[in-house]
């Protein structure tokens, strides 16, 4: 299960990462090795086995619909990269 350089770039783009050209080969090898390792899974029989998403198999607890949050915008925005008039700023997004 070897990945080619384009696949490495495509996966990286999916998760908004960029792999520099001089690192592509290393990622390609590493990722391919990992995939080879996990491919052990594909060889075993899993029909009729219910997937286990979480080790504790209980129901979701429900929260009362009551306002508990208070406005802490100033505190939260004090650690933000860029804000203006209470908004988080990013380079203009066009639709």
């Amino acid at each position: 299960m070897a990945l080619d350089p384009k696949q490495v770039h495509d996966i990286a783009e999916l998760v908004r990462l960029q792999i520099e050209d001089d690192q592509v080969q290393e990622y390609q090898e590493n990722l391919s090795n990992i995939l080879e390792m996990v491919n052990q899974l594909t060889s075993f029989e899993t029909d009729n086995i219910e997937p286990l998403a979480n080790p504790i198999e209980i129901a979701q607890r429900l929260r009362a619909d009551e306002v508990t949050a208070v406005n802490k915008r100033d505190l939260f925005q004090s650690i933000a990269p860029q804000t203006e008039q209470g908004y988080y700023l990013v380079p203009r997004v066009v639709e």
Binding site: E84, Q85, G86, Y87, Y88, L89, V90, R92, V93, V94
Partner: peptide, 15 residues
Amino acid sequence: KSVHEGFGSSSGIDL
């Protein structure tokens, strides 16, 4: 919501 007016070359994000 993204606000595109009033922030120059930026967009403002209101969550």
